[in-house]
Design a binder for these strands. Structure first.
Length: 980
RNA sequence: GGGCCUGUAGCUCAGUUGGUUAGAGCGCACCCCUGAUAAGGGUGAGGUCACCGGUUCGAAUCCAGUCAGGCCCA
């Protein structure tokens, strides 16, 4: 045998004698295959129920899930939202608290109904439906909508579970559940009892063709030719107009001045009740074509040119402010419409003597027209708002089929409005009120089904008044503002301002819709037009809905729906009420009223009041106006307190350039594809590592980065596991630190040992991570966790203890102590990681325990190990930094390449390092030897290449010498292989 | 057009009540290890703090405006 082959043999023997890492925990995560297996395992464990019952007597953290709309697939925003919620729930559970998560879905509403109607239309079934009675037609649509919602709830639920979110998916809440519906009506009854619910006219898009109100989503815009008119409205009191313009005595013309308005819908002129000006604009009194008229200064030239007039002369100017309150005469409505023929709701809050007046409005612009806006509160959204504010009647002389009623002059009565357009123009021309008219093309809303032009028409709607005193006390607006100012915690804090701004400017809440797919507003009508809607009647219907669902509204008679109602006991019932004669209303609730009542339906009722108010609502920042506000208002009305203690919001996902993400822009990422490519744990890590308060940029490359970070964490766990292959921990249920099995009792750790140091570092980590979780700072938590794995463990501790793990005798006290430490670190780390990486943390936890029976999610965080460490450790780490820099300099000069060829002398002027084991220090620096020099002021590097090298540990130790087998070994290595 | 918010290395973010040379991580560059190996370690280079004024002895930080972007309204 040659010399070299003996050397080869010896090398092989030595290598075999090492305790090299070994583990079944794979480096490659294979999340896409293994995560579904985790889901199955947790399912078999009934994990959600198991954890809930284990925590049932613990401190409660009450969380409430806001319902997404049951339509389509979940998008990145849902993923973000659901994962953040899951972090909250899991961190509370791991902190030992009780925290339930009942996922919910918003089921009713137009988007689904619209989709279903489209499908019915395409399949030709729509025509058949129109032959049915109104109730039967609606029921047929509702059945389809329900199927549709159920389908997408199932789909979205599966997607959410695939994200590894932990919740009661077996028992979600759905706004179309009979019990939920009943609970919403209970909230409504509470508001009715407080007298904040009322009914008045509101201008809505109206299809003349189908005689129905339309939502924005049901409009399609097409070009259409219309007549547009400039009309002079004569001033009622000429002197006051001239006063407003500051014209005195002889400067005043002898003519009556006019106000010139412009409109593209002459048919709405009969409903004109006011002229709006912008108080901030300058208005001119001009002479044009022999008339004296008022219009915005900036538009005088444009208008007169358009009319091909000979020019104009400006007599005076003034501000819009000065014009307010001036009166005018309607060109053909005489003293005004006959309001007695109008529905009572038209006159709610109205002061009809205030009509034909100049009023102010900020929406008046200088883009088109004259700067004076024809205002018909019954025929426009802006006009409507102005009308309500100015106490004008909401006057609408147009009936459902698009013809005028009898409140207009005889020549218009019964006429179709589209035909009236030209007739009105001609009438104005012959009476001398028409300044100019022309035909033009413009984009105009049409009924999506009939493709016919729609109109704005005032219809009766239900409202919740935010300025009505609740029980004679504060208004809802005042209560909401007060609670926003001090009764609710906002994360981030600026949510408070945002909410306040919205509350200050919000109008009354219109809660009625004229659709089929929703919760009926339980109003009944007497033959003479009186309404039955009282607290008792609503509660009676609520009871009925809980029994048979809201479908019963369409299948049962009024009498049957009111089977739980006793009119005699209801002081608020209309006099002489005969239930048999009642008819049902056709309105349904705004879906926001349903979701805005979830605090009652899901939390308050189900818990018998215990889970109210709720600790946390967590949604996107758009919900300040949506769910947050529309939950606050009903809750304040009914319970007098906000439904939540804390509101946490997250921003919106945008692309990497900061622009909004949308399918049509082609920059959207797909959740299913992301999960398929990266796995849920990686996606969750990404979410946990972003700052969610503002816009969130998302890009495929960010998920790759998250994947890298995930791999780092995974490899750290894997390396620790791989060094525990021969380690027997304490029996289950016992702390590793108890000293049983191969474990070392915490009290036996030398304070100067590197193990004591790392366990103390873990305590610091645990403290910081748990605090960050508590404050919803998931980003900070993952950053700490990552840095701990990357820096404290991988670069420092694990690098340092490799030598003893590999080369010490397997059962050396030093090695066992380090293994004991590794076991605790892995255990503690798995638990801290569990809320963010539920699959991986559990996988590692099972590998640690070598058992498929255990589950990290049934455990709680380890707060601290409490091992004491030497006070000088920070100094050691400082010395390490300095030494590594010195080493790098020597390396760069090409002298020493491998750190094990080097020794280092550390300066120790204050003797702070002498209590530490020189071997530990050498391991920490990755060099062969460390010595201390009280007189040195900087670390110095020694070249040890001339000293013998241990063939087994590769260290150049002073004890290295030839052993009986002919090999060069240090004392430690010789002992490990059984040589003297 | 209005309300709320954002703008700091190539990227994602820290940056306390204004106060030394603006910090991390990723990425990048160079090097080491080959006994964590589709791994691991070391060192280093990157910034006119969006722009323009102002307050101040001193501004990333406070104020006004501009630009860009987001959410919600109109």
């Amino acid at each position: 045998m040659s010399q070299s082959s003996t050397e080869q043999d010896r090398k092989a023997v030595y290598k075999k004698s090492l305790n090299l890492p070994k583990t079944a925990f794979p480096m490659k995560a294979n999340l896409v295959q293994n995560e579904p297996a985790s889901l199955k395992r947790w399912d078999a464990l009934s994990l959600y129920d198991t954890v809930q019952s284990a925590r049932q007597d613990s401190d409660r953290f009450v969380f409430h899930d806001g319902p997404p709309y049951a339509n389509g697939s979940i998008h990145l925003g849902h993923m973000l939202n659901k994962c953040l919620k899951d972090f909250v729930v899991r961190t509370r559970l791991m902190a030992g608290k009780s925290c339930r998560f009942v996922p919910g879905w918003d089921c009713h509403g137009l988007p689904i109904e619209h989709k279903v109607m489209q499908e019915l239309s395409e399949s030709g079934k729509l025509a058949k439906l129109s032959e049915l009675s109104e109730d039967n037609r609606r029921m047929a649509i509702r059945r389809e909508c329900q199927k549709y919602a159920q389908k997408y709830i199932k789909h979205q639920s599966a997607q959410m579970q695939r994200l590894l979110t932990l919740g009661d998916y077996a028992n979600p809440y759905m706004t179309m559940d009979p019990n939920y519906e009943g609970a919403v009506l209970e909230v409504f009854a509470g508001l009715v009892a407080k007298s904040v619910v009322y009914r008045r006219l509101k201008a809505v898009h109206w299809s003349v063709d189908n005689e129905t109100a339309l939502a924005d989503a049901e409009l399609e815009y097409y070009d259409r030719e219309d007549i547009s008119v400039f009309v002079d409205f004569e001033a009622d009191d000429a002197e006051k107009v001239y006063d407003a313009f500051g014209l005195k005595g002889d400067n005043r013309p002898y003519q009556r001045p006019c106000f010139m308005i412009w409109t593209t819908t002459p048919w709405t002129l009969p409903a004109n009740l006011a002229i709006a000006v912008n108080p901030r604009f300058e208005y001119a009194l001009v002479r044009v074509d022999g008339n004296i008229t008022v219009l915005a200064s900036a538009l005088a030239e444009k208008v007169t040119k358009q009319a091909k007039s000979d020019g104009f002369e400006t007599l005076a100017t003034t501000t819009g402010e000065k014009l307010l309150g001036l009166r005018y005469r309607h060109p053909f409505m005489g003293a005004g419409p006959d309001f007695s023929t109008q529905p009572a709701a038209a006159m709610v809050g109205a002061e009809p003597e205030g009509i034909f007046r100049v009023v102010g409005a900020e929406y008046v612009t200088l883009e088109d027209g004259t700067g004076l806006v024809h205002t018909a509160p019954g025929h426009g959204a802006d006009d409507n708002a102005t009308g309500v504010r100015e106490h004008l009647p909401i006057y609408c002389p147009v009936t459902a089929n698009g013809a005028y009623d009898n409140s207009v002059p005889e020549w218009l009565r019964g006429k179709n409005i589209w035909k009236a357009n030209t007739e009105i123009a001609e009438h104005l021309r012959s009476s001398g009120h028409l300044f100019h008219d022309y035909k033009f093309m413009h984009s105009y809303p049409h009924d999506w089904r009939g493709k016919t032009p729609v109109i704005f028409r005032a219809t009766e709607q239900w409202f919740i008044g935010v300025d009505e005193p609740v029980d004679g006390g504060d208004t809802l607006r005042a209560m909401a503002l007060e609670k926003t100012a001090s009764g609710v915690k906002f994360v981030p804090e600026w949510g408070r301002n945002r909410m306040r701004g919205m509350l200050e400017s919000r109008p009354d809440w219109c809660i009625s819709r004229q659709r089929a797919w929703g919760l009926p507003i339980p109003a009944f009508y007497t033959p003479d037009g009186k309404v039955l809607l009282t607290e008792a009647s609503v509660r009676a219907v609520a009871k009925g809905f809980r029994e048979k669902g809201s479908d019963s509204w369409f299948t049962e008679s009024a009498q049957s729906l009111l089977r739980h109602y006793e009119p005699k006991k209801d002081d608020h019932a209309p006099r002489g009420l005969d239930v048999k004669s009642l008819t049902k209303g056709h309105d349904i609730f705004d879906v926001w009223f349903e979701s805005g009542s979830s605090w009652n339906a899901v939390m308050r009722e189900r818990s018998g009041g215990r889970d109210y108010p709720i600790d946390l609502y967590l949604e996107g920042s758009d919900q300040h106006r949506g769910w947050f506000q529309l939950s606050l208002l009903p809750a304040l009305g009914v319970t007098g307190r906000p439904p939540y203690r804390t509101l946490l919001t997250h921003g919106f996902i945008v692309d990497k350039d900061g622009h909004k993400m949308s399918k049509s822009l082609g920059n959207a990422l797909d959740v299913d594809e992301l999960v398929k490519e990266f796995g849920a744990d990686v996606c969750r890590w990404w979410i946990a590592s972003i700052s969610y308060e503002n816009d969130i940029k998302a890009d495929l490359s960010y998920f790759k980065t998250a994947g890298e970070a995930y791999r780092k964490v995974r490899n750290t766990l894997r390396f620790m596991l791989s060094n525990l292959d021969d380690f027997v921990p304490s029996p289950p249920g016992k702390d590793c630190g108890s000293g049983e099995g191969m474990c070392v009792a915490f009290s036996d750790y030398p304070t100067a040992s590197i193990d004591a140091w790392v366990l103390k570092e873990f305590d610091r980590l645990s403290q910081r991570v748990r605090e960050a979780f508590e404050k919803y700072h998931f980003r900070a938590a993952t950053e700490h966790l990552y840095n701990f794995c990357n820096d404290t463990l991988s670069a420092v501790y694990l690098a340092a203890v490799k030598d003893r793990l590999y080369c010490d005798k397997p059962d050396s006290a030093r090695r066992r102590r380090t293994q004991s430490t590794l076991w605790d670190l892995t255990d503690g780390l798995c638990r801290l990681l569990a809320p963010v990486l539920p699959h991986t943390a559990d996988e590692a936890y099972r590998a640690l325990h070598r058992s498929e029976e255990v589950c990290v999610h049934t455990t709680t965080f380890i707060e601290k190990f409490g091992v004491k460490a030497e006070g000088g450790w920070p100094k050691v780490m400082e010395a390490r930094e300095a030494a590594l820099k010195a080493l790098e300099e020597v390396r760069a000069s090409g002298v020493i390449e491998n750190p094990l060829d080097a020794g280092i002398t550390l300066p120790d002027p204050d003797h702070e390092l002498r209590d530490f084991d020189p071997c530990d220090l050498a391991d920490l620096l990755g060099v062969s030897r460390v010595s201390l020099d009280p007189k040195a002021d900087a670390p110095s590097v020694q070249d040890l290449r001339n000293e013998p090298r241990c063939e087994r540990s590769w260290k150049r130790d002073t004890t290295v010498r030839v052993r009986s087998d002919g090999g060069m070994l240090s004392d430690r290595d010789a002992e490990a292989v059984g040589l003297a």
